[in-house]
Every structure is written in C-alpha cells, then in structure tokens.
C-alpha cells in the first residue's frame, strides 16, 4: 500500500486534465487507474513505481510520483502515473510535438573540414536548456535533430553540424547563407545540467559534434556557479577533427574549475591523448566518486562510453547520454 494513499483523507476534488477533458479521480485512485477507467490507453508495468513504463509529463506533479526519476526528468515535470495521487487538478501534457517556429541564419562558419558552426536567431520565444536538441525542418518536410551549444542569454541558437556524405539535411544546412530562414521545433532531450549539487564532479565526454551539447552543458553549469571540477574530453579520429580548440582553451582559462582534454585514435601530437575515447576518459577522470557523466555523439560511441563508465563505477542514475542516432527513413 502506498502510505500517501492511506494517510490522506479522501480528496473529492482530485482530477486530471488532458486535451480539454477533465477526468475526476476517486479517493485513493492513482492517475494511472483514472486514465484506465476513463478508457484512455496508458502503458504500465509493475504498478509500483519501479519499472517506469507508466511515465507521463504534467504540470507540478506530486513529489512522491517523481521520487525515483532522474533530476532532469523531474525538472521537466515527468512523473510515474501509478504513483501519482494529485491534490487538486493535475494538468497532463498532450504528448504532441511543439509547433515549429522561424529562425534566421546569422552565420555559417566552417570550423573543421566537415563541421559547420551555425548560429540561428529565433523569431519567436524559444525556451530551452543548453545541451537539449531541436529539430530542423527541411523544405521537403524531413526533420533532423541538432543539439544546442549556446545559452539562452546568448540570444542565438548555436549548432554544430557535421556534413554527412549524401546526407539530406546536413548538406542542405551547410549550403545555407546568412539571412535565410530555417524552421525549427523543440526543445527535446534529457541531457542538460541540473544544479542539484554544486560540488559534484562533472565528466563530459563526446566525440565529433557531440561537443555541441557538452559545450552548452559546461557553460551552463559554470554560469550557474558550479563549484566542483568539470572535465570535458573531446574525441575524434585524428587531430584535425577536433574543432573549436581556441574557444575551448579560452573558456578553460576563464574558469579555473574547467579542464578541457583532447583525445584521438591516431596521429596524436603533444596536444592530444591517444587511445580509445572511453579508456582515455576513464584514465583522465581519476576518481569517479560523486561524478555525473554526460556522454554525447554518434550512437555507437555513446553506448560504448555508457557501458565502460558504468562498469568503471559511475552510477547509472548519474549518466546522461545523448546518442546521435541517424533518422529512421
């Protein structure tokens, strides 16, 4: 039995509100039970707050129903429907994607042979957390996700886009010019900084354009006054793949608790470590005590990083991963 449920007197005014419909909850009835009774399809599993299959998003859900979720999910109003006994009316998110908005290209700058740094100026308000991603809408209707490297206070959205051979959207965006319009929608994603412990060590590891979200996360944490050490390890095949080094050095000089390291698989100079990114990152991290990891870049390398860091001792609850999976056709 849920203690919350037995301790509280009947709450006749409890209800959920979804897409214009109000569903009153009986005393002691969870959001999941209410949805099911109303004939609304809702996934579920253990019904006891462990399997997380019944996760939904809403406005200010009861704290009990968010207890076992990651801080990034909690910050966005996710909760477990089987554990939610709201007081008053709980507004549920419709689960529909946000409307697209217009942006204007401010610049397209080549920062590596195949990577462009693109600055977009949104024409509407666009609230996001650095490290989240947005979808770019191609004129054909195709959507591709790109991570945000800038902060809301920059007033621009900074993206790092790698040109994929025969890639529809990445090639197209590389060919756009200043002043052109691009539609985006979002934001999405769970890979961002939450200031729940300013002493935590942050380990940011990414390959290729995985640098984009990591740069956003590092800057966000620093601006929010993070005190613990922040180690950013950027990996690539060979030294010329590692882009924006001057900007990273400057950032590390400005903030004493930030360290930036470079890692390549081959042809390392004095400026880079050589070896597999997961092994180099674990070595450079030193202690993994009280560490939170952010892992971004191509899906395959992110999964390797996730597994290696987990086996090296980082808690699963402290790993935030953003695999750049190719769009499904």
């Amino acid at each position: 039995m849920n203690p919350d449920r037995t301790a509280r007197p009947a709450e006749p005014s409890s209800a959920i509100h979804l897409k214009g419909r109000t569903i009153p909850l009986a005393a002691g009835e969870s959001v999941l039970e209410g949805l099911e009774r109303a004939g609304i399809e809702a996934p579920s599993g253990c019904r006891a707050g462990t399997c997380c299959k019944c996760m939904l998003q809403g406005e200010d859900p009861p704290a009990m129903s968010q207890r076992s979720l990651r801080p990034t999910l909690r910050a966005q109003g996710f909760f477990l429907a089987c554990q939610a006994y709201p007081i008053g009316t709980l507004e549920l998110s419709s689960g529909e994607a946000p409307e697209p908005i217009d942006t204007v290209i401010q610049s397209v700058e080549a920062v590596a042979p195949d990577v462009a740094r693109i600055l977009l100026r949104p024409e509407d308000s666009f609230a996001f957390r650095p490290g989240q991603y947005l979808d770019v809408l191609h004129p054909s209707g195709a959507l591709r996700s790109y991570s945000i490297a800038s902060l809301p206070s920059d007033q621009v959205l900074e993206l790092h886009v790698r040109r994929i051979a025969n890639g529809l959207v990445s090639s197209w965006i590389h060919e756009q010019n200043e002043g052109q319009r691009v539609q985006i929608r979002g934001p999405f994603g769970q890979c961002f900084h939450v200031a729940d412990d300013e002493q935590k060590r942050l380990l940011l590891v990414g390959a290729g354009t995985g640098l984009a979200p990591l740069l956003g996360i590092a800057r966000d944490a620093l601006e929010q006054g993070h005190k613990g050490s922040i180690k950013l390890v950027h990996g690539g095949l060979q030294p010329d793949r590692l882009y924006m080094r001057p900007q990273l050095s400057e950032l590390a000089e400005t903030w004493p608790n930030l360290e930036v390291e470079h890692c390549v698989l081959r042809e390392a100079t004095e400026q880079e470590h050589e070896g597999p990114l997961d092994q180099v990152a674990i070595r450079l991290a030193g202690s993994l005590e009280n560490t939170r990891a952010f892992l971004c870049g191509d899906a395959e390398i992110v999964r390797l990083l996730q597994r290696s860091l987990f086996l090296a001792g980082i808690s699963s609850a402290e790993m935030f991963a953003d695999p750049f999976s190719p769009a499904s056709p």
């Binding site: 599993g45 253990c46 019904r47 006891a48 707050g49 462990t50 399997c51 997380c52 299959k53």
Partner: peptide, 16 residues
C-alpha cells in the same frame, strides 16, 4: 529500470 523491477519483485517488494 527493468532490473530494478526484477529485484523489487523477487524480494517481495511492491511490484505486481
């Protein structure tokens, strides 16, 4: 999450 459900279940915790 699923392995946590597994451990909860086999120790008699709340998992139906």
């Amino acid at each position: 999450a699923k392995q946590k459900a597994f451990l909860t279940y086999v120790t008699g915790g709340p998992a139906a």
